[in-house]
């Protein structure tokens, strides 16, 4: 019980610190939210009107007052008003979170599974052409910008071959309410592939290194002396040991996949939180950016916590920790 309380207190402190850091960074950034909001309209909007906008957003108050006012609202369950979308932050997030979860959640799951499988395969065949191919593939992907990969996939499969749609979460010219499940899946494929390819590399490389380490241990030598085949060893001794770092990396990669999704969503016009994040950052939309930052913090820290708990399960030696 005390452990749970301590964990919750730590979680709350982490969220508060992240919020403060994001707030201060945005205040220090050169983006003037009113200028960014007006865009080209700045040419015909006078100083009086700009002051009126700043006052309506509370930007005319001292910085610490702005932060405390925001924190007070959040504690009462009100995430505030998004200035760039002119809608409540909760609504902006609710409208986008389903699309984001479908894309990032699936990409995360698939990259975990494929990454682990590829890592195991490469380690079992360490030094052979299989291992080399997988490694080169991983290095290549780890070095590839997601948006470029996404563009390449789109040029090949959407423009060249015409197998997948150009954009969006539904067909062009069809209202969202009339899109069938099959059409939704069809539109999900390409962004999902781009994001999964991006996530696989890290997990595969970590798994591979750990498994190779395991395969060189004394107990594996013993098993081998007893006549176990390579696959026997990988399955009975390797996977469980290699699963530890793979789990940790997979849980920690949530943040990275979310980051990658920001770029992939731009390319495929996928209506998730990623695009809202870019919009909020570019326009200095503090309430929205803070809410998204807190959500990501929550997901990543919870992911790490789950990884800790799972590790205790997977590895009895860590049970006492």
């Amino acid at each position: 019980m005390a452990g749970v309380l301590r964990h919750l207190a730590r979680q709350a402190l982490l969220l508060a610190l992240v919020a403060l850091a994001v707030f201060l960074l945005m205040k220090a950034s050169p983006v003037d939210p009113v200028d960014a909001y007006l865009g080209p309209a700045i040419a015909h909007v006078g100083p009086e009107q700009k002051a009126q906008i700043a006052a309506a957003w509370g930007l005319d108050r001292p910085t610490h007052e702005q932060f405390l006012a925001w924190a007070g609202h959040v504690l009462r369950g009100d995430l505030g008003q998004s200035t760039s979308y002119n809608a409540p932050v909760a609504q902006v997030m609710a409208d986008r979170i389903k699309a984001s979860l479908a894309l990032t959640g699936l990409a995360w799951l698939l990259s975990g599974i494929f990454g682990f499988a590829l890592g195991c395969w490469a380690a079992a065949q360490a030094g052979t052409w299989v291992d080399r191919t997988i490694r080169v593939y991983c290095y290549l992907l780890a070095a590839t910008p997601t948006f470029w990969l996404a563009l390449l996939l789109m040029m090949a499969f959407s423009v060249g071959l015409g197998w997948t749609p150009i954009c969006c979460a539904g067909p062009i010219g069809v209202p969202p309410g009339q899109v069938s499940l099959w059409q939704k899946l069809h539109h999900l494929i390409l962004p999902l592939v781009a994001l999964t390819l991006f996530g696989v590399a890290q997990i595969a490389l970590h798994t591979r290194v750990k498994l190779i380490e395991v395969l060189q241990s004394d107990y594996v030598l013993l098993a081998r002396a007893q006549g176990a085949t390579a696959w026997d060893i990988v399955i009975h001794h390797g996977i469980r040991n290699a699963a530890l770092p793979a789990l940790t990396v997979t849980m920690a990669s949530v943040g990275e996949i979310f980051g990658g999704s920001i770029l992939a969503e731009q390319v495929f016009a996928w209506p998730g939180l990623g695009r809202a994040t870019v919009e909020a950052g570019m326009k200095g939309d503090l309430p929205l950016l803070l809410a998204i930052a807190l959500l990501t913090t929550l997901i990543v820290s919870t992911g790490n916590r789950i990884a800790d708990l799972l590790q205790a399960r997977v590895d009895p030696r860590m049970g006492g920790a």
Binding site: L151, I172, V267
Partner: peptide, 22 residues
């Protein structure tokens, strides 16, 4: 009867034109 405005980026817009979708 209906007009659809696509809000994809410039690249996706061009790709859509090449694919005959706009």
């Amino acid at each position: 009867g209906q007009i659809t405005f696509l809000f994809t980026g410039e690249d996706a817009g061009l790709a859509a034109a090449q694919a005959g979708a706009v």
